[in-house]
Write a protein that binds this DNA or RNA. Structure first.
Lengths: 248, 248
DNA sequence: TTAGTTCTAGTCATAGTGACTCTAACAAGG
DNA sequence: CCTTGTTAGAGTCACTATGACTAGAACTAA
């Protein structure tokens, strides 16, 4: 690893572009504002220039022996402690001026994390330095409107949100944000959070029951102050287009 | 540009990954086999190792001042002479072993070219060396099954074909593969070629007329041995998600 | 003038969907 | 024990989208 000194930014820009991997992480959380569930994501605070102390997507360099998705998963674990249930390539961002120093091309992945997994990590991360946390969670909708994020990360988040909302296979998305067993109402909550609109429970139920990748179990979820709903499980295959992508 | 000598492949692999841009180009052509139109794409013959003399996707390095899409367009013009009507990022391929020499991460774009534009270039390219052409056109379906392409380009083509067939906005795709004015039957030919199945003319007509991004003109296409069909034009906006992407 | 072709309009049955109603099955509180 | 509140889950109705099909319109070629 030889570091070559350059006198100014212009010269650094003529270097071959550096390659970085970043990840947009989605999880589901209770939203104190609306009372419903909504989409949240963790950002990390930058410790170095440029954009020191500003919030950024977790990311890092590409290891010499890692595939792109492995690099994304490894980095995600190192920076946030999270292990995603889903990981898919989002887009490669490479505008020449997206980094003020040397040119960086970022291959961005997007990940889905279960609510339980995410909450564990959250407390763990904030317990280190509660006043100045290294990782913090934000409402996805808020971030898409903020202007103080590092690099072009606000634009990336905006695009990730768009992709999530225009994803065709919502079935698998809901499953990966929930646990092994779930009620149809929970799936509906996922849809409502992602699409940001209320759905008719009866019609939604009818649609889901005609979906092939969800099967009913013999278990029911008791404890609510109402009729116990039946639990369902995901039966669709975890594989996707492009083998070895995504995560079980 | 200093070239550092390395004794073996293993050491080269520890270098930072090189970045390359490649493009999968689709165009529409008469298919002598089926008699209908089908999807074709041009490949270039490699002049250097590795995979010397084998067919590969057109591609090249990323210029220091070009955006990713500009690099794709520039390279596409230089290697094949083609100017695409549509250009969108497909995927970033970065498996550690996809190149036998040093590690290469390829950001791949996919392009749509009009039949007229493509045919000009074809004759131009083959006229240079008719026996051993630099560029040649292949049926997309055939390529997706071939095993003798350079690098992982067969896999990339397979994925590009899958993406094209699962594209939601077919309207704009048909428009970009055709000219400014087109008949509804021509649009149907595009759909039939892409989806690889026959469509009912009357039903297809009904569906297209309810689409908002196609408007009828006062012109008709005469010359056929049948009732002259009306000509239509595309009125949808060329802009897409991610500004400055795609091409007018 | 006739035959052959495609364009174009229309019908009919069916599948899917949004809005809505109603009953079932629990918990909580008197 | 019984009422009330809540959500689960089944079902109805109207409307829309779509596949299969029929038939007339408008051209060319012979």
């Amino acid at each position: 690893m030889s570091r070559i000194p350059f006198s100014n930014v212009a010269e650094r820009r003529e270097l071959p572009p550096a390659l970085a991997i970043s990840t947009v992480i989605f999880s589901l959380r209770d939203d104190p504002r609306t009372g419903r569930k909504s989409l949240w994501m963790p950002l990390v605070r930058r410790t170095r220039e440029p954009f020191r102390n500003q919030w950024a997507l977790p990311g890092g360099p590409l290891g010499p022996r890692d595939s792109l998705i492995d690099a994304a998963a490894a980095n995600l674990r190192d920076t946030t402690g999270l292990i995603p249930r889903y990981l898919e390539q989002l887009y490669a961002f490479g505008h020449p001026d997206r980094s003020p120093t040397r040119r960086v091309v970022s291959i961005v992945y997007w990940a889905l994390v279960r609510e339980d997994d995410a909450h564990d990590t959250d407390t763990e991360a904030t317990s280190v330095l509660r006043d100045d946390p290294h990782v913090a969670w934000f409402r996805a909708d808020d971030l898409a409107a903020r202007q103080d994020l590092a690099f072009d990360h606000q634009e990336i988040i905006e695009y990730a949100l768009w992709r999530l909302r225009n994803k065709v296979e919502y079935g698998s998305i809901a499953y990966r944000l929930l646990g092994e067993r779930f009620t149809l109402a929970q799936v509906r909550e996922v849809y409502e959070a992602v699409l940001d609109k209320e759905l008719d429970p009866a019609n939604f139920r009818r649609a889901l029951r005609s979906a092939t990748d969800i099967a009913e179990t013999d278990e029911f979820l008791s404890g609510g102050k109402h009729r116990p709903p039946r639990l369902y499980r995901y039966t669709g295959s975890p594989t996707h287009r492009l083998e070895s992508e995504n995560i079980a």
